[in-house]
């Protein structure tokens, strides 16, 4: 049964097993398409496991092919649709911040931190969709990771985005180099990009 469709993938649920299949995109050249799908699938499977080892809740990976991943189905609420009305938003934001702290502690950059890629299950926030992720020690890359989140929060949850982001940043400080990253983030925020 198809349960969802992201920007890149079709998600098929089969007895509590979720298959994420990066489907062919006919708009782009085959060479580009195949390379991206393979690379991202490989990267995603690896980072899902690395992140789990780092203490971040992620679906368990059972199997992978060139362009698909068989993983645990996380039965919960997608934060994109849930966080605006969540009473326990503070707890959720705290968990998000702690998750990012753990990723960055282990030099994992998620690359696509949006509420479309976070699932709330009971009291846990699961991170999914690591296809744009990579490994990096650079402060700049970690700051950009936060910047992506800040921007997508602003775009999609504008009225509350400041509150959300502040809370997230607050618990992100469990990461020992968080100060450096936050300083860099502030620089990125003011960096003008027009003309």
């Amino acid at each position: 049964m198809e349960i969802g469709r992201g920007a890149e993938a079709i998600l098929i649920l089969n007895n509590n097993l979720l298959i994420k299949n990066r489907v062919e995109k006919c708009y782009r050249l085959k060479e580009i398409d195949e390379k991206l799908r393979k690379e991202r699938t490989k990267k995603e499977a690896k980072l899902l496991s690395d992140a789990k080892r780092a203490g971040v809740k992620t679906p368990t990976v059972f199997n992978t092919t060139k362009t698909s991943i068989e993983m645990e189905f996380v039965e919960g609420k997608l934060l994109r649709d849930h966080i605006n009305k969540a009473r326990n938003w503070e707890m959720i934001c705290k968990k998000i911040g702690e998750n990012i702290a753990k990723l960055h502690e282990n030099n994992i950059i998620h690359g696509d931190l949006t509420t479309s890629n976070m699932i709330l299950k009971n009291e846990d926030v699961y991170f999914i969709d690591f296809g744009l992720g990579y490994e990096s020690k650079r402060i700049e890359d970690k700051a950009i990771d936060l910047r992506v989140l800040e921007k997508t929060l602003k775009a999609k949850h504008c009225k509350r985005s400041d509150e959300f982001f502040k809370k997230i940043i607050k618990s992100y400080t469990t990461y020992e180099k968080s100060n450096e990253v936050i300083n860099r983030l502030e620089k990125i925020q003011v960096r003008g990009r027009y003309l």
Partner: peptide, 19 residues
Amino acid sequence: QETVFAMLIEVSERAMSHT
């Protein structure tokens, strides 16, 4: 052309998916 346009379309598709 193929590379930069593919990027433009991908980002558009991401926005459509997210919104």
